[in-house]
Design a protein around this nucleic acid. Sequence first.
DNA 1: GCCAAAGTAGAACAGATGTTCTAATATTGC
DNA 2: GCAATATTAGAACATCTGTTCTACTTTGGC
Lengths: 209, 209
Amino acid sequence: MVRKTNTKERILDFIRVFRRDKGYSPSVREVASHCGIKSPSVVQYHLEQLLEAGLITKDKVRSRSIGLVGDEEGPAQVPLLGVIAAGQPIDIPSVDSQKAGHRMIDVPRDIMRNGRKLFALQVRGNSMVDAMIADADILIMEQADSVNNGDVAACWLENEQEVTLKKIYYEKGQKIRLQPCNPYMLPLFHDAANIRIQGKVVAVLRTKM
Amino acid sequence: MVRKTNTKERILDFIRVFRRDKGYSPSVREVASHCGIKSPSVVQYHLEQLLEAGLITKDKVRSRSIGLVGDEEGPAQVPLLGVIAAGQPIDIPSVDSQKAGHRMIDVPRDIMRNGRKLFALQVRGNSMVDAMIADADILIMEQADSVNNGDVAACWLENEQEVTLKKIYYEKGQKIRLQPCNPYMLPLFHDAANIRIQGKVVAVLRTKM
DNA sequence: GCCAAAGTAGAACAGATGTTCTAATATTGC
DNA sequence: GCAATATTAGAACATCTGTTCTACTTTGGC
């Protein structure tokens, strides 16, 4: 099966962007069509379970009556947990503690998908120009110990004692290919043992120009 | 006839409470029923006029697609007006026309300050790596013919026939210094006459990693 | 491999829904 | 009162839409 992401997640995501975009909910068949599903009954099948799980609301028989729970309102913000620089590992004090006076960073709504644990780090220095990331940029990251091939991740390199931001590809023989985001630069190869994934980069914001 | 309030007002009021209550819009016949109207065509008749007057939005044929304008505290979004690439000038079709089916881009709330006319352009190609901007990045821009020293602007270079993104510094003698955002790169100098400012870059978003 | 469970596809149906057309009725300006 | 305009009704239609049912395929545990 090629499908990587969960069908229910894709459905939720589609409903979210559709609603945000159009102001009303998609029909069952529109969901099917945009999520690569061939039959409305399949959508119905998943909607019933999402309803049971309390993730959506929905009136019987009413068209376009799907609602998302706990979605709207409340500004889209993530806590700024610290600084990321080349020479020091990321110290994440526990993402949940947003109570502690962390500055909150405004982010685009559409990256706040179903309860992902997101946080922000501010880049210090110019060590990541090879990842097209400038001094003072804000990285929006998701907590993760491991990532999928092609994801951009923040990695701590044990031997080098430094943080780097690269696309991750798992290769044969416990090797990991670190591919710079800048397409003009060449990849590095490391032993998996040398690399500690510290989080997955979801977005980059540059608002101070 | 006993009807005291205007029919259009009653329709608008009903749509408003219905949406607030249910989270989606009523159907034409539901409007009719709750507003004491006997025929869906009458509702259609009034909806057309409300649409013309710009008081509601509505997609043709889509059920329950009525939206109220200026109501619910729209999410922070700006219209994606087009593409920006090295070899072609930016063609901005008029920032106001957000009605035309432009895709709307979610942006951080805090960049939407005091009614600035913002729009978004998607970067195509890798011609702006020197500005730390990657392919597919989203530029959030503000309409502007001129900028202040140090602002990052999109400039059209007449002689070279290309778009570039640089920090702008006005120097003596009608010269303009174009300073790359990448601190490792050297500035260019141009005659002011060769440069047409096309907009000021407010932010850069990179959400597809 | 085997089996149960989960997921997908397709068809079919009843009712909902937006739309259009024509005709009737009410309102307004003169 | 009269005519022009605005509004309302009703019917009819094509399509959209939610729902249900059955059958088929994939997945995961053993």
